[in-house]
Design a protein around this nucleic acid. Structure first.
Lengths: 244, 244
DNA sequence: AGAAGGACCAGTGGTCCGTA
DNA sequence: AGAAGGACCAGTGGTCCGTA
């Protein structure tokens, strides 16, 4: 790892199993469960990356013996149906949503530590939680990724049927993840419109969603739609009339 | 003013009356209401300071004609009984608590603006609120001061009788504001002990208190007392067995 | 091309310490 | 001495853009 600065808040909890992926939502990161299973490979410490080029190699026990290895990223997501496992070097959307549940677990651990110590207790997934996740071995969790897909997870939480239907439709059409991600905004805006446009309340009312910050773009889309958005108006490059 | 950076979030709301102090809790800042009344002086733009030495003088219309004037601070607080107006160049505790109510009003204005614009809406008194207060003319409100006395205000909110009794006792004994401020911790810790030590819940359950962050020291005192603090233990220099 | 994530940045919470 | 508050600083929320 490259975060060697001591963080008094996050030093406990390392005896926990680091990660422990669920079977039905198994991730397929650089060397994740699915790949491990199909290759007959023994499961290694999950999320352990090969080494970051910019960082002194502290591992020493790298299995290839090489001092410098290529940067290993998570496999990209593809649009999968509910229950479908992604084939090849891809990750499916069940796995994506599973990452949000894992973040929730890490938040709960951070909260428990904070309460024990009488310290300020986060109510949201903060930088501290991402740092904790990384230290606990879940290096495949990072802030930009989780923030990028929050609204997709929100739709999954708030209207699983609509979310599932959208996944099936986009898979069938052969759309890429970016198109599916964009399309997730529209049904959420529709939900907001039925609930007085208060997207913050909608998030906060759902126990698994309340721990996530409302994404800026979703907030802006709700605002634009509420104010009777016209065809010419747009929010930071995204037309209000969504492509879906 | 020295904050010339544009803040899109805080540009509205300036047609509001800037400050408008209540009569019964009139402050006596550099040139506040009480002083103005006793001196027969006409009330000027409240909170307008004489000019900050480190800043280019943008006023021009300074009433003394001097380019550089001495820095004018708020008068220091003294321990007053409930309803008592501080005499001389002092401010009383009713005025102190009134500042917290004013901050609440500024927060509500910031919240209303944010909601109108569909932006993130603060639930606490944040830097943004202090900036807004300053721009609205309430330059006598500042973050270090408000944070310094939050727990005193908390006691006033949670147990006004106990707060009043403490004020009377400390006034009678001729104690200074610092001693009174220190003494406010103990009854709060006692309240927390009766409610499962959850000081955050106690703050959040009270509508006027919920908008203030729990002060670090109060949190630490609750933690220490909960864990059966001994005579030798202390929290950052303050003995757990408080001087009161 | 589409996508993952290191790393940056403006503005935050917190409070110290030079000031009056 | 006791007290008010400018100003600093470590770590935050947010996301861009060099990378693979």
């Amino acid at each position: 790892g490259d975060t060697n600065t001591l963080d008094a808040l996050s030093q406990e909890g390392f005896s926990e199993e680091p990660v422990q992926q669920d079977k039905e939502a198994a991730g397929t990161g650089g060397r994740g469960t699915w790949e491990a299973v199909t290759a007959g490979e023994r499961k290694k410490q999950p999320g352990r990356k090969k080494g970051h080029r910019k960082v002194v190699d502290l591992d020493g026990d790298d299995e290839h013996g090489g001092a410098i290895c290529e940067r290993q990223r998570e496999h990209p997501f593809i649009v999968t149906e509910p229950g479908e496992v992604a084939r090849g070097k891809k990750n499916g959307l069940d796995y994506l949503f599973h990452l949000y549940e894992q973040c929730r677990d890490f938040l709960i651990q951070v909260q428990n530590i904070a309460k024990e110590r009488g310290e300020k207790c986060p109510t949201k997934v903060t930088n501290q939680v991402f740092r904790y996740a990384k230290k606990a071995g879940a290096s495949y969790i990072n802030k930009p990724k989780m923030r990028h897909y929050v609204h997709c997870y929100a739709l999954h939480c708030l209207d699983e049927d609509a979310s599932n239907a959208l996944r099936r439709a986009f898979k069938e059409r052969g759309e890429n993840v970016g198109a599916w991600r964009q399309a997730c905004y529209k049904p959420l805006v529709a939900i907001a419109s039925r609930q007085g446009w208060d997207i913050d309340s909608i998030f906060n009312a759902h126990p698994r969603l309340a721990i996530w910050y409302v994404p800026t773009k979703l907030r802006q889309l709700c605002y634009a739609e509420r104010n009777g958005a016209t065809a010419s108006s747009s929010v930071s490059g995204t037309g209000v009339h969504l492509p879906f």
